[in-house]
Write a protein that binds this DNA or RNA. Structure first.
Length: 880
RNA sequence: GGGCGGUUAGCUCAGUGGGAGAGCGCUUCCUUGACACGGAAGAGGUCGUAAGUUCAAUCCUUACACCGCCCACCA
């Protein structure tokens, strides 16, 4: 659009407001059409690979993608411009639990359960759903300008990835790192599946701590041991009372039996265990190994039986022990009934209000029930050790560093990972059972049949119905997407990747597991840098949630303000050490204004009467004005700073740096300065050169507007996407001239300030007495920028700084007097401060030399300035 | 209970061992040939509290208060 306007020679016909909706989708389509995001492995260039954390197939873009995915896009685009073999590898996760939940809900609307459909048809339906409705998030990512290599997109359920998963499972099994066993697991009754420890969320609840007496004799309910519990419904499965071995209150009772109320059908022993806290409750605790993790450990230590009374539907079951009238009651209903009965029988002594935390399932939100169950596990200790070593010797590091301690602590205290799930959508375990119950683990059914025939003499196999935890397949993501176990070029060139960017909430679920599995199967860490990006909250610091109604949809922001604006608004708020962003829509509006500023600066450049040069070249160095040299020096410094900041993953400061350069340096000063007549010959070249460079610096952050503007300027190549990153060595550096320009800026500000005090209309010229030793070009800029008429007066001071300081503003005597008096007052206080400081012997003796010298210089400068102002004040009072 | 962040202008946040910053909001002026999604000039802060280190502390140390996050087997 801009380019066409340029050719038409009528840029002023362009609208004054930038319209991202007209630009963004069009440019994205072109980029994708030309395959600018696609790369092949090229060993001749350094790789820069980022594996996209695969969003759930059920997922939709949210603000968090702004803080995590936008930075990945920034890095990939930046490294591509640096000429590296840069590729961002995308994909989608099959999100077993979430997808299954969607489908089950869908079926329910049809009055069906998944069993009515059968596994095969259910899985078929899940595939259909994933293909048609799923992956919509990829479209949203396109709209946000994210540029991963779509041709390489992978789905965790793809056959290649599933077969990699089976390979990993089989190998770990053969190495003895995967086993099947009956352990206490977290059961999610509403999802009807296990949940791993890392997927639990603890919620504080107000409840009660009930004191209950277990009697020594059925005949005397008043004589017994008092325990405290928050979960009376589990007492039906109690197998013991535990006390601390050195608790004097109970020591003589250890070994005795008590009756188990309220049924009083069996007795349980009192045992001693160090894990009991004598300070808590009554110091005696009921032990229910089948329904509590700590009790399970105590039960194991004491060889206690482990009856269950809560079944998979979270109802009371009498399969193991008598449960009397409570059979089949819901767990919470049972609690009420049991409490009532205990009360009636005199065993309930007290109900004390108590705040406690319950484990809930992250996915379903249901209260998780610890249950004994036969499941598959990964032995973690052996895998964790190398992952810890890799962190400790620096092969992986965290940004910010502090997250490393989180990772370390988790790995040090790691527990076995329950990987079997009782859902149908996902990678089915490559495990078969013979009629005798022998396990056969193999990558394919044929192989399993052969093994079974050879080892057990049967071909009658039943496959384990369970599927693997979704995180099992994402744990091998950095190499499974490169074609592992095949020895592909991709695998050879692109493993390991260069950085992982993700939210802090999945350091355990995903990051640590990728490191462990990467080390185990590829013998190298999957990425050296782990960048933990901040979580986005609302402006009040609350999590965004549907129930609060404070969710901001990034797609709506992109619609309203443009994807570039959305990206800038998030990036500018990121801080290297920050762990949260409080998002306010006003930041997006501000970024939209920024883009509009860029648009209008471009309109100005395109509308220059002299037209733009064909090629992007700078005029000879001698032709450059002060302002040119200043902006080029500032550009050079901006390029260097941007590079440093992006290399450090400091996206916030990088965004801030280009933002300030564009607005406060280029637009506010340089563009204004080019309106002076003197620039006619060179300005179009310098303006378009600097603007071209600025657009390239901006491109990783705001890909659309930078491309649109860049294409309209003199440029090399087809697209900014593959343009080269600006090189500061391509243009002259003249710090001295740049400094002269900053002296001019201060003078302009001083004059403008006076103008305001005089109350001049913005267009009315003020008259300035400018010393003869201020060079003509500088004086001309002063006249332009301060809207002034220049009268030359006698040379004053030594050097440009002093000469400019001597510039006088002609103004009514009263205004000048007030102004000078204010200045005198300010200068005196500064001089006073400096004198006191330098008069302090301790300061002069102990402060670093340059600090003292600087202080002296400042003091001298203030004194000179004071002398000048006082002279001016005196001159004012003398009769003309 | 343990660990980690945070506390700076009305709001959201930068920042630094040596004279407190931005954006938004607010006040005044300005529809000047890029831009009112703009320009210019301003007002506004004892940098959470208290001690300590230092010639010098908003910055370093300690304690405390409040807010937030993570971890943990308080039954």
């Amino acid at each position: 659009m801009l380019g066409a306007a340029r050719n038409a020679g009528a840029p002023m016909d362009l609208p004054k407001q930038y319209d991202p909706q007209a630009v963004e989708p069009r440019l994205y389509a072109l980029w994708e059409l030309h395959g600018y995001f696609h790369e092949d492995p090229d060993p001749a260039r350094p790789p820069f690979i980022i594996c996209m954390p695969p969003p759930n197939v059920t997922g939709r873009a949210h603000l968090g993608h702004g803080s995590t995915f936008a930075p990945m896009d920034v890095l990939t685009r930046y490294h591509r411009m640096l000429g590296q073999n840069a590729d961002w590898l995308p994909g989608v996760d099959h999100a077993a639990i979430a997808t299954e939940a969607v489908l089950v809900k869908q079926l329910a609307r049809e009055g069906l359960r998944r069993e009515d459909l059968g596994r095969e048809r259910f899985v078929e339906r899940a595939w259909e759903w994933s293909r048609s409705y799923g992956g919509q998030i990829e479209e949203q990512f396109r709209r946000l300008g994210f540029g991963p290599d779509w041709q390489r997109s992978r789905f965790t359920m793809d056959e290649a990835l599933s077969s990699a998963v089976r390979r990993v499972f089989v190998q770990l099994y053969r190495e003895g790192l995967i086993y099947r066993g009956t352990r206490l697991v977290n059961w999610d009754p509403s999802a009807q599946s296990t949940v791993s420890d890392a997927e639990l969320e603890y919620a504080e609840r107000d409840g009660h701590l009930w004191r209950i007496r277990y009697p020594f004799s059925k005949a005397d309910p008043a004589d017994g041991v008092e325990i405290a519990t928050t979960r009376p419904e589990t007492m039906l499965a109690d197998v013991a009372i535990a006390v601390h071995p050195r608790d004097p209150r109970y020591s003589e009772w250890i070994g005795r039996n008590v009756w188990l109320p309220p049924l009083l059908e069996r007795t349980i022993p009192i045992v001693a265990d160090e894990a009991v806290d004598p300070e808590f409750g009554t110091g005696a605790v009921k032990i229910t190994p089948a329904h509590d993790p700590l009790d399970y450990e105590i039960g194991e230590r004491h060889g206690l039986p482990m009856p269950s009374v809560i079944d998979l539907r979270a109802r009371i079951t009498g399969v193991d022990v008598p449960v009397g009238p409570y059979a089949d009651l819901d767990r919470f209903e049972a609690r009420e009934r049991i409490l009532g009965d205990l009360q009636e029988l005199g065993f309930l002594l007290e109900a004390q209000p108590h705040r406690y935390s319950v484990a809930t399932s992250e996915r379903s939100g249901d209260i998780v029930e610890p249950l004994l169950s036969l499941q598959w596990f990964v032995k973690m200790v052996a895998l964790a050790k190398p992952a810890l070593d890799a962190y400790r010797d620096g092969r992986v590091r965290f940004v910010p560093e502090r997250y490393g301690r989180t990772y370390e602590h988790w790995l040090e205290n790691i527990r076995d990972w329950n990987i079997s799930r009782q859902i149908w959508w996902g990678q089915q375990l490559p495990v078969w059972y013979t009629p005798d119950g022998h396990e056969v683990v193999a990558e394919t059914e044929n192989e399993a049949l052969d093994v079974a025939a050879q080892t057990y003499g049967t071909r009658d196999l039943t496959r384990d119905p369970d599927t693997l935890d979704t995180w099992f397949s994402s744990g091998i993501w950095p190499f499974s997407i490169l074609g592992w176990p095949s020895e592909t070029t991709e695998l050879r060139c692109w493993y390991p990747s260069q950085a992982l960017l993700t939210g802090g909430d999945i350091i355990f679920l995903w990051v640590a597991r990728m490191v462990m599995l990467g080390l185990h199967f590829m013998h190298r860490v999957p990425f050296p840098d782990i960048v933990i990006t901040p979580t986005v909250f609302d402006a009040a610091g609350r999590k965004m949630s549907k129930s609060i109604g404070n969710v901001i949809d990034p797609m709506a922001l992109a619609e309203k303000y443009g994807a570039d604006a959305f990206r800038i608004s998030i990036l500018r708020q990121m801080r290297l050490e920050g762990q949260e962003i409080r998002y306010q829509e006003s930041r997006c509006e501000e970024a939209r204004n920024f883009n509009n500023k860029i648009w209008n600066a471009t309109r100005y450049i395109l509308g220059l009467p002299e037209g733009l040069p064909e090629a992007m070249t700078l005029p000879s160095e001698t032709a450059l004005t002060h302002a040119d040299r200043w902006i080029l020096t500032r550009l050079r410094s901006t390029i260097v700073t941007m590079g440093e900041l992006l290399d450090r993953y400091d996206f916030g400061n990088a965004a801030e740096t280009i933002y300030r350069f564009v607005w406060y340096e280029f637009c506010d000063w340089y563009v204004e300065a080019t309106k002076a007549d003197q620039n006619g010959a060179t300005r179009a070249a310098v303006l378009s050169f600097v603007w071209n460079n600025a657009m390239r610096l901006l491109h990783p952050l705001a890909p659309f507007i930078s491309e649109e503007v860049w294409l309209a300027l003199p440029h090399d190549g087809q697209t900014i996407v593959t343009a080269t990153w600006p090189d500061p060595l391509e243009f002259p550096d003249s710090p001295a001239d740049a400094h002269d320009f900053t002296l001019l800026q201060r003078t302009v500000e001083r004059v403008r300030n006076m103008r305001a005090e005089i109350g001049l209309h913005p267009r009315e010229r003020v008259t300035l007495d400018v010393p003869a030793n201020v060079p003509e070009p500088i004086a001309a800029l002063l006249a332009l920028l301060a809207t002034a008429t220049i009268e030359r007066c006698a040379a004053a001071g030594d050097g440009l700084g002093a000469a400019l300081a001597a510039v006088r503003v002609r103004a009514p005597r009263g205004v000048l007097e007030e102004r000078y008096n204010k200045q005198v007052q300010h200068l005196r206080s500064e001089i006073d401060r400096g004198e006191k400081k330098l008069g302090n012997e301790a300061f002069v003796a102990k402060a670093a030399g340059d600090v003292v010298a600087k202080e002296r210089e400042k003091l001298d400068a203030y004194r000179m300035e004071l002398a000048r102002v006082e002279a001016a004040l005196r001159a004012l009072k003398e009769p003309a």
